[in-house]
Nucleic acid binder design. Structure first.
Lengths: 336, 336
DNA sequence: ATCATTAACGTAAGCGTTTACATCAAAATT
DNA sequence: AATTTTGATGTAAACGCTTACGTTAATGAT
């Protein structure tokens, strides 16, 4: 059932039918009515491929993310982002083509979906895509937005969590509400923007209160690395009151290590994390943390992308999503 | 840069160029050579949309999964499936259009990607899609395969884990290697095929050894429901030696509850789970479990789907993926 | 009454492929 | 040598839309 048939049926041209179906002006109300009726009766669905070929718009966006981080991580961070993206895009009649990146795939702009003009825009998720690769994408002129990543050299559309503010709030809570002074920060790889920003938030909070920053670094942000960092911290600073984990996995590892060392959490040592993954509530003691609105990030990214697609030439936007303090047991609030 | 241009460049028709590019016979080696060279030099990429319009094949498959289970679950089960799917499909030049299902969306066959012929086939993941919906999809004639689900009334392509066999092996380990006799099974919703099959495996193992089956049911398979079931089990059976959780979250909940009740795991009570999620190794004690090859399931599903697409009329296939016993601390092996 | 403007609609040329069919020369058959 | 077969290639329609442009008649301005 195609345009031509329904045009023939009511004795108008395909152009008129097309106009009606695309809500374009230049067709009388009566004819419009007739077309709409015939289309509905015939249960007509325009062929998106033919439309795409004619308009060179696919009504499809690409979602690109690192395979390893996407599927093999402890918590479904990127799937949640995708879920938010999907919400907004399907509401607006767009489809999602997903591409998972291997380690080796450096040349993002060579991806089939881009190279073959299968998508109208791109969402590039995660800080694991090379800056040079992103620049290459930018130079193709295709609209795109970064999620959980930025480009320092160059202004681009991006959506990020306010990691600095979140970490600041968390540390501030330990300082102000619990009067802790000796607070260590268990960090992670500094190439990731989130880890850098969270560290900055911690440093600002400490500095504002005239406290000394105590930072331990690691190459990973897992339970194991959290345990390892906590052991180092306990050894190095005998007077430790509290630790702040760069994310929940690290914090949970820290609780483990502290407990094994015979320190009670939160009695002897308070612990806080970042992310609010689903296991945070199930930890023992349950983990106080800073919640990030992962799904919302995806939603906003999709919104930003559609804006860019539909209004070319818009200046790049940087969107920060605020966080929320989630108080549970591990910071010590329940003990007061 | 289109077909016509490169045809003109070397003085042949577009038909010939098309034949060469599609590896079709009827072109002399010399001309073929010339075309290939010109195409390479011009860095020519066929326009997939035009091709799809002409052939009515999109080289794209749809991946459909329940949004809630996809993104909000404790462990990235469906993302892993997707990753496996992606592996096989990209290897074969196919793209993936993803659709996340809301609660309310009952009419899978009405999804835009199907209705608008945007995909050549479908992967329907998870046991949350109504059987009637699946039948509707089947009646459209579009090739599809179920992952982590089956249709009892009707033979269809599906890929499943050998849940029955896995659970049998796990329980058998508790019986034979640890000489436990009083083993309870902490179950989950019976609508899910996996839960049913795991229960069956447990029952078979118990029966074969002449032991009495002890089953607790719950509406969920979370840590909380695991704790709750364990409390019930401990109350009901004083002589309990071991419990088998229908999945790792339940098993971890069971460990919690047992510990809170003053029972040592695995000393007083052995615990085993199913899935081998990433938190299983990090649990305390670390969880003995049955590993499922999630990514492989996706890979096989994709393979099955492409077979169906490329060779229409193939009879439906049911693929069972075997499991693997993962021995850690919670079953008691390390204590011997 | 004349001309310019506008609204409604049709015509047809794309969009970039594939492919059934036609053509033609060369090779094979008789 | 005449005829058939074969293989290589070209022609053009088709896929199902969109849209620039042309046509016509009605409206408004002078």
């Amino acid at each position: 059932m195609d345009l031509k048939e329904i045009a023939k049926q009511i004795g108008v041209s395909t152009a008129t039918v097309s106009r009606v179906l695309n809500d374009q002006p230049g067709v009388s109300p009566e004819v419009r009515e007739k077309v709409l009726k015939a289309a509905a009766e015939a249960n007509y669905r325009p062929n998106p491929l033919a439309r795409s070929l004619a308009t060179s718009k696919s009504q499809t966006v690409g979602f690109v993310v690192h395979k390893e981080k996407y599927a093999f991580s402890d918590d479904p961070f990127y799937p949640l982002i995708l879920s938010g993206v999907e919400d907004y895009l399907t509401q607006n009649g767009y489809h999602i083509l997903i591409t998972l990146l291997d380690e080796k795939e450096k040349q993002v702009q060579k991806l089939p979906i881009i190279d073959q003009h299968l998508v109208d825009g791109l969402i590039l998720a995660g800080p694991f895509i090379q800056a040079s690769s992103i620049m290459n994408v930018a130079s193709t002129g295709i609209p795109f937005v970064l999620v959980d990543n930025v480009l320092s050299q160059y202004p681009v559309n991006c959506v990020l969590t306010d990691d600095e503010g979140g970490a600041y709030a968390g540390v501030h809570h330990l300082i102000t509400d619990h009067h802790h002074k000796n607070i260590a920060f268990l960090s992670g790889p500094q190439e990731w923007i989130s880890n850098r920003e969270r560290l900055r938030g911690y440093e600002r909070a400490m500095q504002e209160s005239g406290l000394e920053a105590r930072v331990i670094h690691a190459k990973e942000t897992t339970i194991a690395s959290g345990e390892s960092m906590m052991r180092q911290a306990l050894e190095r600073w005998q007077d430790l009151n509290a630790v702040y984990g760069v994310n929940d996995s690290v914090a949970i590892g820290a609780i483990r290590a502290a407990t094994k060392h015979g320190r009670k959490v939160p009695g002897d040592i308070a612990v806080m994390g970042f992310d609010d993954i689903s296991w945070a509530a199930a930890s023992q003691p349950s983990l106080s943390t800073v919640k990030i609105f992962t799904q919302r990030m995806g939603y906003l990214a999709a919104q930003c992308l559609l804006n860019s697609i539909q209004q070319p030439g818009l200046p790049p936007t940087k969107t920060l999503v605020t966080t929320e303090l989630v108080i549970r047991e591990s910071c010590g609030c329940q003990e007061k």
